[in-house]
Design a protein around this nucleic acid. Structure first.
Lengths: 334, 334
DNA sequence: CTGTTAGCGCTTTCAG
DNA sequence: CTGAAAGCGCTAACAG
């Protein structure tokens, strides 16, 4: 109700000037132990909460790090954000988390919010180049995580998508599958391009040609995703499916269940992004597991290092995924 | 790089005073169409991003609404937050999302962050009374969601936990179960108290006494949760289990799977908070479903209404859960 | 070690 | 309709 307590209030209460109060409470500069004690007590007594806006305005930068991910309700991004948060918290930064629904426009709007709040750094799973460029142009430190956009030189943490996809595909090929469908998000992101490359590379290694009809790019949140997957099954008759993200894995899994196809007897399925349900269904899914939490932690650490030294050379960290073989893959039906 | 563009810069560029620039860009007060056009163009050209701190400092309030939930990586809270975000965005407020890990201390720290940012309102799934009281004392509008803490009069949106639990328990009783275990979080929250009451009420309705040995309170993230559930099974030999939140449902489910108990043949299981995996496992889980997204939307709407009119009488909205009967419940073994 | 002073960028009276 | 002026709360020189 009544006006919030200001630094001037506690200075008056403790009989000092505002500057001394500032020094005492922020811990910068000399203050006599005596004055410090009085000020701390006064702050405590009056329930002082520093005004972040005033501080940001004066210092021309805040303690907020912006984080924008593509889909807040997807466990992959949720965990990623959790890793970021954990690391930032230790460094006494505040994470401001936003979802952009994979829309360039929302991503740019988020970037403007971060700029408005004078966030010194931003971590994002980039949708387009626009937001990253806007931020970099304004001098904000940016770390790309999970994927990269072309053109801008900045820090990044990604996984070796090509390798993960190659291992998943080779696993199926090794089991004897010859017709392996690839379900992949229809984007121009480096993740999906890498996964496609890995799928192709595995075929090349095995001396096999890729049948383009087996590659199905599906836009995010396509309402007819499951129909399309069903149609692929009917037309192309694959014996194995590699679903290159957790959403597509779930959709494929639902189609197979609806058709009462038995895994791995009738068909094999491999997912990407190992998340809890994959281990809970029957049979549990073989999947490419990402060090998701670690991805977030590394991104945050990279950002902190850059805030510390803006002149560093940009670093790109490459983490390794791991294929977890479970019950959903086996030899093709004979 | 170079200093961010300020209002003064675009005023100079457009040949007006800063005040006129402010009026033009914020849309408050009279500006000639001509001046407005010049200013808008200049802002566009220079890539002006308003400084939120300066605005907040001057207006003594921000457009940020603080949201604190107990567990960011739990889908229930993630969806709740999604509902809040959606509604706030429409009203041009920015959500600042924090997780407090069900710790009073973290919740209070979050509240202080919201105060520091001069958030006019806060929505939280309250852990203790401390944070709510701190916020209310400082004149911040607070909406409690999912549960309520005693003592403070403020807006709230909750579901009818007692009824949900009663229906779940009655369902099991109706199938002929006589020994029904209740797995419930060990908190003093209204959610868990309500669920316990519903469990008891269902027994009373059926003219049955409750065997206290069947009621197992388990602290959040107890490392030995699954051992305790196993011990309950061994000692008390229930034929049905009602797990009063999604975490406990998952833990119970894992115990049953490990023991190769068949649902519902050997044992029946009912969960709370219907989330996707419950429908994906075999057999799918019978569960009490909450209108989670709606819970978030209502909380946000309540907050917006209160910001609009701080004098309103506090409202408590009560939403209804629904029992979804699936394959994990059946008659007890004979 | 402390106080004075100036100003961060914006909005808002208040006169013109 | 516009501009001058003041001030939101804090911090960082700088002079004592």
């Amino acid at each position: 109700m009544n006006r919030p307590v200001t630094l001037a209030d506690i200075a008056r209460e403790a009989g000092t000037s505002p500057s001394t109060a500032s020094r005492a409470l922020s811990g910068h500069g000399y203050v006599s132990p005596d004055a410090r004690a009085r000020l701390l007590a006064a702050a405590e007594r009056l329930g002082y909460v520093p005004n972040a806006s005033a501080r940001t305005l004066k210092q021309r930068t805040s303690r907020i790090v912006g984080v924008a991910v593509s889909d807040l309700s997807n466990e992959f991004y949720a965990r990623l954000a959790a890793g970021v948060e954990e690391t930032l918290r230790e460094a006494r930064y505040q994470m401001l988390l936003l979802g952009d629904n994979s829309e360039t426009q929302e991503e740019v709007a988020g970037a403007r919010t971060f700029l408005a709040l004078r966030a010194p750094g931003v971590i994002l799973t980039p949708v387009g180049a626009e937001a990253v460029e806007l931020l970099v142009r304004q001098g904000v430190a940016v770390v790309e995580v999970d994927r990269r956009v072309a053109g801008v030189r900045c820090d990044a943490v990604v996984i070796d998508n090509e390798r993960g996809a190659r291992e998943a595909t080779s696993h199926l090929l090794g089991l004897g599958h010859r017709r392996i469908a690839l379900l992949v998000a229809d984007t121009d992101w480096t993740t999906d391009a890498g996964r496609l490359r890995g799928y192709v590379a595995a075929h090349e290694e095995a001396g096999m040609a890729v049948d383009e009809g087996l590659v199905l790019p599906i836009p995010f949140h396509a309402p007819d995703a499951e129909e399309r997957i069903g149609a692929l099954l009917d037309v192309e008759r694959p014996t194995g499916i590699f679903a290159a993200n957790n959403l597509l894995a779930e959709q494929a899994w639902r189609v197979l269940r609806r058709r009462r196809l038995r895994l791995p007897h009738d068909l094999s399925l491999v997912g990407f992004d190992d998340i809890p349900w994959m281990e809970m269904v029957e049979p549990p899914l073989t999947a490419v597991s990402q060090p998701t939490l670690e991805l977030g932690r590394r991104a945050a650490r990279l950002l902190l290092r850059r805030l510390d030294d803006p002149q560093r050379e940009p670093t790109v960290e490459l983490l390794q995924p791991a294929l977890i073989v479970r019950g959903s893959t086996g030899p093709p039906p004979s």
